[in-house]
Amino acid sequence: MNNKNNKANKSSYINLRVTEQERDLIKRNAGGNVSKFLIELGTNRANRIDKRIVIQDPALVHQVRRIGISLNTLIREVNIRKQNELDIEFMDVEAQLVIANQQLSDLILLGKRK
């Protein structure tokens, strides 16, 4: 049941109570057409993720993964010591964090060069 403009005939209304701040935010996010924005959002047609194949440097992914594993191990050790009320050598923790930070900085610089 389309009219001459090829738009569906819409005869139902939804009343929605919001605060002024929420109304302003919805209008801003809608970019002009609030009805279209809410329909797309409510029917899961909004912000569809464009599935693209991303080619990543396997060596870079491997290095980031290794850094993540090191950080998780460090945090796990800190939590275990904390739970068991053992002393935590914060100088050692800081040294490990400095190393991880330097490794991440090196990877960022490497990525910018490519």
Results as ranks from 00 to 15, higher is better:
N33L: 04
N6P: 02
N44E: 07
I99M: 15
Q102Y: 10
I99V: 15
Q96V: 10
N84H: 10
L60D: 12
N44K: 10
A59L: 12
Q96N: 13
K7Q: 09
N33M: 03
N6Y: 14
E77G: 07
N15L: 11
E40T: 06
E94L: 11
F90V: 07
G42H: 02
V78T: 02
V98R: 15
N72F: 03
E85P: 02
I49H: 07
G32L: 04
I53P: 00
V64T: 12
Q96C: 12
L71T: 04
G68C: 03
N15E: 07
I99Y: 13
G32E: 02
V93Q: 07
A8S: 09
N101V: 08
D50V: 11
G42R: 01
G31A: 02
V54N: 04
D106Y: 07
L41Y: 04
L97S: 10
S105N: 14
K7G: 01
V78F: 04
Q96G: 05
N101D: 14
R76A: 15
E94H: 14
I26Y: 01
R81V: 05
N84W: 03
K112M: 14
Q56H: 13
E40C: 04
E77P: 00
E94A: 14
A30C: 00
E77Y: 10
L109T: 10
T43F: 02
P58Q: 09
Q21Y: 08
D24K: 14
E77A: 14
A100R: 05
K114E: 13
R45Y: 08
I69P: 00
D92C: 07
E89R: 12
F90I: 08
V64R: 03
Q56N: 15
A30E: 00
K82A: 15
L25T: 06
G42Q: 01
K51S: 12
